[in-house]
Design a protein around this nucleic acid. Structure first.
Lengths: 251, 251
DNA sequence: AAAATAGTGTCTATGAGACACTATAGT
DNA sequence: ACTATAGTGTCTCATAGACACTATTTT
């Protein structure tokens, strides 16, 4: 998707570009915010950062940052992920852009939201600096209704979200629920190998409802996307399940 | 989705906001571009405007405009639709944001793209001013592969697109193809009443492939979203089909 | 042995596709 | 009468859900 700047071969156009003054109209700020989703223990989680500055001091915000002038939107999201969660090489997709005029009280900020999926074990908040945590998402709607969600800490206390970030996380959950039906993204929330039941639990966690075990197994095995490792899980008090990995290609 | 600016009740926060200087960091421009799709005569069309200014003078661009400081993204898209195509009350949805650093050679412009669906008959380009036309879209890929498309005029000549707009139109077609399978949006491309076969032709036009007549009829009639008008079409050289309208609710 | 989940095989209900047949307009 | 499409009825095939049954581990 890299796009080179077009070289003006026409001298008239070159003169036009040289005379163009980009400062005559007021411009909004543009930020990226990343909804970093993981699915530990049958709950959807997202990473949030406690705000130590105004506005919304004390509330929790999505990892984010302003887009730099020589940086693509995707690159900005990747930079934020690395800085706030120590992550590279994760599933990342643009979600939606949020641009209500006063969503940020400081100035006009348009947020291009992304969502990322990752095995919960891989999240490594950076030492020191900001207070970063992974919080459980409570989805107060079913299916793909949409709307804001709530965040709850490990101890069960509510974590109030800053700005319109509850709406952004809700949009991410809605998108992921829709995507799960026709796209193989569930395994992005798991480690390298996993059992079919673990994959099923991830789907149930995302969708917020039970899924039929028999047809789930059949569909997954018939998809051709799973590869048996020959290994089985260990240490479980029942017949061990076979471990699978996802075939790397065409994702 | 309207969001009131948060009133800072904390005096310390109020002081912070008053001291905040929004001009210290360079900011990109933010524009909205609208892919206005219609489906006359078994072809997807989109509205484009001939550029009379540099850059890309002589090429064709999507209707667009810069987002104003006190205007939401949706409001900007609605304003553009009214100004360039004389349209109000059309199906409109945010598509994707495009932000490669040099996609516009003048300065950094981030485009929040929208797509709109409308009955082709309703498009009314404004008199005078810009050269506005509705051009046929040639999709050089199948299914939801994605990628840039080409535009062709009524006389069959290619209309070269400015900036990354071929990619944006391609993204709109891809999105619409995906949406058509699980969401009742096809009727947005038709007039108030229509026959089942007209609706089927719209689906085939969007999807770029034939659809099964029998199961299409069954699905549409079983969906409960269609309402028979009791009227039939006239002036056709065969048994006239019944006219339906879409039930207004839950869209 | 008991408990618990893995995994197989089979029956049924549902929806898509295919096809035959009838209905009704214009020419 | 002929042509073209509308609309109905029925058969088949693929897939989801349900359920019975066997397999294999820890306790």
């Amino acid at each position: 998707m890299a796009r080179e700047p077009r070289k003006p071969s026409d001298p008239e156009e070159a003169a036009f570009l040289a005379a163009y003054d980009p400062t005559v109209f007021p411009r909004p700020s543009v930020a990226v915010d990343v909804v970093l989703l993981s699915a530990p223990q049958n709950h959807l989680h997202t990473v949030v950062v406690r705000r130590n500055e105004h506005p919304h001091r004390g509330r929790w915000a999505l990892p984010g940052g302003f887009v730099r002038m020589e940086e693509s939107l995707d690159a900005a999201a990747i930079r934020v992920l690395e800085a706030k969660a120590g992550l590279r090489q994760v599933y990342l997709e643009q979600l939606y852009s949020f641009g209500q005029p006063h969503r940020d009280p400081r100035t006009r900020v348009i947020a291009v939201a992304y969502y990322a999926l990752v095995d919960h074990e891989r999240i490594r908040p950076p030492a020191g600096s900001a207070e970063v945590t992974s919080a459980r998402i409570v989805v107060p709607w079913e299916g793909e209704t949409g709307g804001p969600v709530k965040l709850v800490s490990a101890t069960g206390t509510a974590l109030p979200l800053a700005f319109d970030h509850a709406e952004i996380v809700g949009t991410a959950v809605k998108r992921l629920r829709g995507k799960l039906d026709y796209s193989p993204v569930g395994f992005q929330l798991l480690g390298e190998t996993f059992t079919l039941f673990e994959l099923q639990r991830v789907h149930e966690t995302v969708l917020g409802r039970p899924v039929n075990k028999d047809s789930f197994r059949r569909r997954q095995l018939a998809s051709g996307l799973l590869e048996a490792t020959g290994e089985v899980e260990t240490g479980v008090g029942h017949r061990p399940a076979e471990l699978y990995r996802f075939r790397r290609r065409a994702i």
